[in-house]
C-alpha cells in the first residue's frame, strides 16, 4: 500500500497545511471573534447567502474545508501512531483518519452543491 499512497497523502497534507495557514486565522478572527464581540459588522443573512451562493466562493470553501480535513487526518494519524506508539493499530488509525476526511469531503461537497 505504501508506495502508491504516501506521496498522494502527503500532497493532500501539504496543500491543506498551506491553505489552512493562509486562510483560517483571518476567518476565525473575523467570523467567530471580532463579529460576535461586535467589533465588526458581518454581512446580513441575505448578503451572506448571496456571497456563499457565488460559484467561486463555493469552490474556495470546498478546497479549504476538504484539504484542511486531510491535513488533520495525516498529522493526527502520525501523532497517534508515533506519539502513543500504536503500531499495531496502524491500519485502523489510517482508516479512521483518512476515512473521516473522505466522508467530510463528500458531505461538504454535497452541502455546497445543494446550498440554496
Amino acid at each position: 500500500m505504501r508506495r502508491s499512497q504516501e506521496p498522494g497523502l502527503w500532497a493532500l497534507f501539504s496543500a491543506g497545511g498551506m491553505l489552512a495557514a493562509l486562510v483560517l486565522p483571518v476567518l476565525v478572527a473575523v467570523l467567530w471573534i471580532a463579529a460576535p464581540l461586535g467589533w465588526v459588522e458581518l454581512p446580513t443573512h441575505a448578503n451572506l447567502r448571496a456571497l456563499i451562493g457565488h460559484p467561486l466562493t463555493r469552490l474556495v470553501l470546498f478546497a479549504v474545508v476538504s484539504l484542511a480535513l486531510f491535513h488533520w487526518a495525516h498529522r493526527f494519524r502520525y501523532t497517534l501512531y508515533d506519539g502513543l506508539q500504536l503500531y499495531h493499530l496502524n491500519q485502523l488509525i489510517a482508516i479512521i483518519t483518512y476515512g473521516t476526511a473522505t466522508v467530510g469531503t463528500m458531505v461538504t461537497g454535497y452541502a455546497l452543491v445543494v446550498f440554496p
Binding site: L27, V65, W72, R75, G104
Partner: peptide, 11 residues
C-alpha cells in the same frame, strides 16, 4: 491540526 479540523467543520 485538531484546531485546523475544528475550524473547517465550523466553517
Amino acid at each position: 491540526s485538531l484546531f485546523v479540523a475544528y475550524s473547517a467543520v465550523l466553517l
